[in-house]
Design a protein around this nucleic acid. Structure first.
Lengths: 136, 136
DNA sequence: CACCTATGTAACCATTATAGTTACAATTAA
DNA sequence: TTAATTGTAACTATAATGGTTACATAGGTG
């Protein structure tokens, strides 16, 4: 199961996109997400590292680095996921066995295809799409 | 990240599909996967519960309940995954906030679509496809 | 029947990821 | 100068995962 950082990150970015800069502090965001401000800052740090938002010490709030329509959900997903592979593999299958010898490359390929299908779907939706859906 | 039970389950079923029944004991499978026999039996139990294979106490080995071409990777995936949802959500966002109030339903929809894209890909491949890929 | 072997589980442990929390240095703005 | 905020480090609790030991139960064979 994929962690909730992805969901929280979308929540954060939605608030930053909406709010007047002065208001969207980690404290304020934490109130909306219903968690601790440090959890927000941790995720904000990841989003910042990925180049999706800007902020600085001493200055309250944060701003997006580009238009919400130009931020895909895949951008956000990749920003908060440290593992680049979705499916785990078992390590060191027995190379003496025909199955053990070949299973990894077979799975690698298959898993990659499945992961790509999901990511393609995420790439097709933007932060703006989420915002639009919320204001309906 | 999705656990390795999925990969191990495919490995197990590949061996069961190939092997002469008498040989594919949990001990033998464990040797190929390179893990403990109990881990194998645990996963075998899930596959059995999902109706993908048959086995019984006292009788060594296991057999498939249907043709490898009739077992999709999605069948296997669902058999060993206890959570039916791929993406986690943060609980109890603040209903006082417009974003907090509407984020969940918006995400539920979006996440479901992405998950479905992945599952559809898994549904399109069978155990036999994996076996074929391994014997190339 | 007696013995061996294998499955099916329960129980326990170590490791890891996750999310929450406290604490504090650094920085900005009033 | 003071207050507020970001950015981190460090620690904790919880849960999932995979490995392990132990053992009851059930076939199969001499």
């Amino acid at each position: 199961m994929i962690n909730s950082r992805f969901a929280v990150a979308i929540h954060i970015l939605s608030l930053v996109a909406s709010g007047p800069r002065e208001k969207v502090t980690s404290e304020y965001i934490a109130g909306s997400v219903n968690t601790n401000p440090v959890v927000i800052r941790r995720i904000t740090g990841m989003l910042k590292k990925a180049g999706l938002l800007q902020s600085q010490v001493g200055t309250p709030g944060a701003v997006l680095t580009r238009d919400p329509g130009e931020i895909s959900l895949l951008d956000i997903y990749l920003a908060v996921q440290e593992k680049e592979v979705l499916f785990s593999m078992h390590e060191n299958p027995n190379p003496q066995c025909p199955v053990g010898k070949n299973i990894q490359s077979a799975l690698e390929d298959t898993f990659h295809t499945a992961q790509t299908a999901m990511e393609k779907e995420l790439a097709s939706k933007s932060l703006q799409d989420i915002r639009t859906r919320m204001t309906l």
